[in-house]
Computed example of a mutant assay.
Amino acid sequence: MNILLVYAHPEPVSLNGSLKDFAVKRLEDAGHIVQVSDLYAMQWKATLDAADSTNRQAGVRFNPSLDSKHAFENGLQSKDIAIEQEKLLWADAVILQFPLWWFSMPAILKGWVERVYAYGFAYGVGEHSDARWGDRYGEGMLAGKRAMLVVTTGGWESHYSPRGINGPINDILFPIQHGILYYPGFDVLPPFVVYRTGKIDDAGFANTCDALGQRLDSLWQTAPMPFRRQNAGDYDIPELTLRSDIAPDASGFSVHIA
C-alpha cells in the first residue's frame, strides 16, 4: 500500500523524530511504499495568501476561496501545493504526526491543510440540493482512503480523560479528525496518542514503539471511528442538523458518532 506520513516537528533528534523514523521503517519492512512530507525540513510556507496562485494580477482583491478554486481548476497553483495534492491522491493511507501544541496541531501543519485542501479538491465539491449538501463528511475526493493521527503530548493521560482538566482527548482532536480528515472523505482510525513525553525513558520508548508498531501493522484491519455520514439520512438537509429522533437528549461532538 502507499502511505503518506505528514510530519510536523522542528527537531529531528526528538521523540517525534525517532517515532517518525520507526514508523517509516516498520511500514517499509511490511512492504508498504512510504512518502514523508517533513514540513519543517521542507521549509513549508504556512500562510495561505495570494502568492499561492501563479497568475495573480497586482491590485486585484484576494479572495481565499475563489482564488483557490480558480488556481486549482486552471493549473495555476504554486508547485508545492500541487505536489502535496498529488501525494494525497497517490496515498492509500495518510498519517498526520505532530505534537499537541496549545490543544491543536502546530501552525505549520495547519498551514499545510489550509493551502493543500484547495477549493474543488478537498471542499466545494459535489451537488448542493435539498437531497444532499456536497460530497463531504464521509464522501469527497479522498473517500476510500484511511487516515490516522499520531500525537504526542506532555500531559498525563488522566489530564485528557472524560473528567480530566484538559477535556477528553477525542473532543480536543474532533476538529482535526472529523473536520480535517472525515470532511473530505477519509475513513478515520482512532488516534495513537503518546502521553507524558518528557518522562519517557528507554524502556518507555521501547514500549511506545511496540504499541505504535501494532497500530501500523493493523492499519487496514482497524475499524474506523463511526462518524455519521452527512448524506446518509441522519441529518436534515439543508439545515445540516442531526434529526430530532436521533439521540434526542444529547448534544455536542458525541452525537456525530453513531
Rank of each mutant, 00 (worst) to 15 (best):
I165H: 10
V193D: 01
P190L: 06
V188A: 05
D201Q: 09
A203R: 14
D202H: 12
R163V: 15
G167E: 02
G167C: 02
Y195C: 07
T197K: 04
N170D: 14
V193P: 00
Y183Q: 14
F205C: 09
V188S: 01
G185E: 11
G198A: 09
G198W: 05
D201Y: 10
G204D: 10
I165P: 00
D202N: 14
I172F: 02
I200N: 03
F174C: 02
Y182I: 10
R163E: 14
H178A: 09
G198K: 08
D187Y: 03
N207S: 15
I169W: 04
Y183E: 14
P191I: 09
G167L: 04
A206H: 13
F174S: 03
D202K: 14
D202T: 14
C209E: 13
I176C: 08
L181Y: 05
G185H: 05
G204A: 11
S161H: 06
F186Q: 00
D187M: 12
L173G: 02
F192R: 02
N170K: 14
I176A: 07
Y183K: 08
I200Q: 01
F205S: 10
A203Y: 11
T197A: 06
G204C: 06
R196W: 08
N207P: 07
N170T: 13
V193Q: 03
P184G: 02
Y160T: 10
V194W: 01
N170V: 12
F174I: 05
N207M: 15
I176D: 00
I169L: 08
N166S: 13
G179K: 04
Y182W: 09
N166E: 11
G164S: 10
Y195G: 06
V188L: 01
H178N: 10
Y195I: 03
Y182G: 04
S161D: 08
P184N: 05
S161A: 12
P191M: 08
P184L: 03
Y195M: 06
C209I: 11
V194R: 03
F205G: 06
V188C: 01
H178V: 05
P175N: 02
Y195R: 04
K199N: 09
I169Y: 00
I200G: 08
P162Y: 11
S158F: 12
I176F: 09
V188T: 02
A206M: 13
L173Y: 04
I180M: 10
D202M: 12
V194Y: 01
P191E: 05
Y183N: 11
T208S: 07
V194G: 03
P175C: 00
Y182C: 04
Y195D: 05
G167D: 04
S161V: 07
Q177T: 13
Y183A: 14
C209K: 11
G185L: 05
P190M: 07
S161G: 02
F174R: 01
A206Q: 15
I165K: 11
N170A: 10
D187N: 13
R163P: 05
Q177P: 01
I165N: 09
N207C: 13
F174H: 02
L173K: 06
P162C: 11
C209N: 10
I180G: 05
P168E: 13
F205N: 09
P175E: 00
S158K: 14
F174M: 01
H178E: 04
V188P: 01
I200R: 04
H178P: 03
R196F: 12
L173M: 09
R196Y: 11
V193I: 12
